[in-house]
Amino acid sequence: MCSTELDPSSESQLDFDYDDWRQQAIDGGSIRSVDLQNGSNGWSSPPGDLFCLRGPNYLSSRQKVPSGDWSLLPAGVDWLRSSRRLDNILSRPDNRVASALRRAQSVGRSLKSFLFAINLQVPGRECHSAVFYFASEDPIQPGTLLHRFVHGDNAFRNSRFKIVNRIVKGPWIVKATVGNYAACLLGRALVCNYHMGVNYLEIDVDIGSSAIATAISKLALGCVESVTIDMGFVVEAQAEDELPEKLLGAVRISQMEMSAATYVAPAT
């Protein structure tokens, strides 16, 4: 009778496969991770200090200050297309990011991780989705503004979910147009649908629900290969004890090619 021992190199590979699920998610996206300064047709993670958010004395001084580090860690970006709008992507069995986390958790690793996804749904003859994934390594702390947002009702979420944009590079018309909406409460300007799972929250932002947002997205997508944009996501602070604001996460999209979108079959 012979015994079978796990090869040390295989054990190391197993540890990498399951402990580093977030790196797998980053590496496997439909658009690749690129250099922050010089990358193109990809995404990167801009530092928080590029975004000015409400400071500790904002309610009295109206002063904004550079944000610190993000609350959540980057976990990849997808650029997807389909014949119909893609909703609740994290619930799909073929979603690569949720699958990577499930595989890690199936062997008892990353049990505390929480996924946060923002799905910007772009209307058109083909529906597109830009999906930004973020994750926490530990449970979100009770009592924090982020915890209240995750576990709050949709009215609370709509009153707090904010995007902060920066055009890094692009034609003047895009800079001027997007600059007018540099900070926007998405939950009030657009229809946002919130999908809560056991270990995730996904926000589906229906750009087609606003004529202005649809026009801006068409303008930006028309010259997308020459545009680099930073997008930061924030739970807006509206009370003294919620300040200063902190980024949930941020992503830089650098001169993306429309053809980079991966086709996804609509849910049955």
Rank of each mutant, 00 (worst) to 15 (best):
D35N: 04
S12Q: 15
I26P: 04
S10G: 11
N41W: 00
N38T: 03
E5I: 07
D19F: 08
F16T: 09
I31P: 02
D35M: 05
P8V: 03
S30D: 03
R32N: 08
Q37V: 10
D20V: 02
D15T: 12
F16D: 12
Y18V: 13
S40H: 08
V34L: 05
N41Q: 02
W21C: 02
D7Q: 06
Q24R: 09
I26F: 14
G28L: 12
I26G: 08
L6E: 08
S33F: 12
S33D: 15
G42K: 00
P8L: 06
V34G: 02
D35H: 04
G42Y: 01
Q24G: 10
Q23C: 10
S9G: 12
R22D: 02
V34K: 00
W21S: 01
G42S: 10
S10Y: 11
Q13K: 13
Q24M: 15
L36H: 03
N41S: 02
G42A: 13
D7R: 05
R22N: 05
I31A: 10
D35Y: 01
E5A: 15
I31Y: 03
R32E: 09
N38M: 06
W21R: 02
L36Y: 03
D20K: 04
N38P: 02
L6M: 11
S33Q: 15
W21L: 06
S30G: 04
E11S: 09
L6F: 10
S33T: 11
D19S: 14
